[in-house]
Computed example of a mutant assay.
Amino acid sequence: MAAGKKTRVKEQTPEGAPCPPGYRAIPIKFSQEQEASHFLYVKEHRVRGGTESCWPSERTLFVLNVPPYCSEGCLAQLFSSCGPIQSVNLHDKPDLSETPKTSASAFFCSKSVPGFQVAYVVFVKPASVLKAVALQGPLIISTERHPVKTGIEKWIADYTDSLVDPEALRVEVDKFMEEYDKKIAMEDAKAEAEEGVPDEEGWVKVTRKGRRPGLPRSEAASLRVLEKEKRKKARKELLNFYAWQHRETKMEHLAQLRKKFEEDKQRIALMRAQRKFRPY
């Protein structure tokens, strides 16, 4: 190691597991029968000066390494002994937005991929954060009083939760369409009011509303368009590339010759029938 170079050594938990600097490791177990422990890394939520956050720094506990089977309710149960909890929010990665991201719809919202997450536990009192950081484990997630569903029971519960109430969905869609129609009507009214009125620099906004609507296409025009598309498609195809295409081309040619021969016979017969002797 070079002289004068310092390295940061990771803190160690009582059980010998490595811990990131500035965090406190809390061992948890899924059930009492489980021998191995999983570690949550917690610290008081703080942000740099000048950075705004929607989470109150004095009352928020930041939690890392939250396993997929640990839900918001499980975290609230684990830290309930430290004091009353205001809210628990799970995220895929740390979120420093000014306002919490909440979906306006219960049906049309993106679902995160199951995996390890981070959590923001907001307590009612600031002293609860210090108690949570000083917790000694292991903490049990699934207890007799608060069991966590697994296996078939969890699959059945997830399937039941995925079923959508048609009436609630209809109400939400109707509400969304009403708001959308109001928004479009307001935009149209604003555009109509601004049409033909010059702005501060003297420019006039031109819209497409003044254009003459196109006439409906007639049947003959539609047939011409279809015929043009058919010819364009035929040019792209390979003619007589396969043996069956070559045979079909010969058969069509013979059929056209027979048809023309029959038409010529009928025309000659008609000319002979109409021919008369006219001496005068």
Rank of each mutant, 00 (worst) to 15 (best):
residue 31 S to Y: 02
residue 32 Q to D: 10
residue 33 E to W: 07
residue 34 Q to I: 06
residue 35 E to S: 07
residue 35 E to F: 07
residue 35 E to M: 08
residue 36 A to T: 15
residue 37 S to M: 08
residue 37 S to K: 10
residue 37 S to D: 08
residue 37 S to C: 11
residue 39 F to M: 12
residue 39 F to L: 08
residue 40 L to G: 01
residue 40 L to N: 00
residue 40 L to F: 00
residue 40 L to P: 01
residue 41 Y to C: 09
residue 42 V to A: 01
residue 42 V to L: 04
residue 43 K to Q: 13
residue 43 K to M: 13
residue 44 E to I: 12
residue 45 H to K: 05
residue 45 H to W: 05
residue 46 R to L: 14
residue 47 V to H: 15
residue 47 V to D: 13
residue 48 R to D: 14
residue 49 G to R: 13
residue 49 G to Q: 10
residue 49 G to K: 14
residue 50 G to S: 14
residue 50 G to N: 14
residue 50 G to D: 15
residue 50 G to H: 14
residue 51 T to I: 11
residue 52 E to A: 10
residue 52 E to Q: 09
residue 53 S to W: 06
residue 53 S to D: 14
residue 54 C to F: 05
residue 56 P to N: 14
residue 56 P to K: 12
residue 56 P to H: 13
residue 56 P to M: 15
residue 56 P to V: 09
residue 57 S to T: 14
residue 57 S to Q: 15
residue 58 E to C: 14
residue 58 E to P: 09
residue 59 R to P: 06
residue 61 L to K: 03
residue 61 L to T: 04
residue 62 F to Y: 15
residue 62 F to L: 09
residue 64 L to G: 10
residue 64 L to E: 15
residue 64 L to N: 12
residue 64 L to P: 06
residue 66 V to D: 02
residue 67 P to K: 03
residue 68 P to H: 10
residue 68 P to I: 06
residue 69 Y to H: 12
residue 69 Y to L: 11
residue 69 Y to P: 05
residue 69 Y to F: 11
residue 70 C to K: 00
residue 71 S to C: 07
residue 71 S to W: 00
residue 71 S to P: 02
residue 72 E to P: 03
residue 73 G to L: 06
residue 73 G to D: 07
residue 73 G to N: 10
residue 74 C to Y: 01
residue 75 L to Y: 01
residue 76 A to F: 02
residue 77 Q to D: 07
residue 77 Q to W: 02
residue 77 Q to G: 04
residue 78 L to H: 00
residue 79 F to R: 00
residue 79 F to S: 02
residue 80 S to D: 11
residue 80 S to M: 11
residue 80 S to E: 11
residue 80 S to C: 15
residue 81 S to E: 12
residue 81 S to C: 13
residue 81 S to Y: 11
residue 81 S to L: 10
residue 82 C to R: 01
residue 82 C to Y: 03
residue 82 C to A: 07
residue 84 P to H: 15
residue 84 P to Q: 13
residue 85 I to P: 00
residue 86 Q to R: 14
residue 86 Q to H: 11
residue 86 Q to K: 12
residue 87 S to V: 07
residue 87 S to R: 07
residue 87 S to C: 15
residue 88 V to E: 03
residue 88 V to K: 00
residue 88 V to H: 00
residue 89 N to V: 08
residue 89 N to Q: 13
residue 89 N to Y: 06
residue 90 L to I: 04
residue 90 L to A: 05
residue 91 H to F: 07
residue 93 K to S: 06
residue 93 K to G: 03
residue 93 K to A: 06
residue 93 K to D: 05
residue 94 P to G: 05
residue 94 P to C: 05
residue 95 D to Y: 07
residue 96 L to C: 15
residue 97 S to R: 08
residue 99 T to L: 15
residue 99 T to R: 12
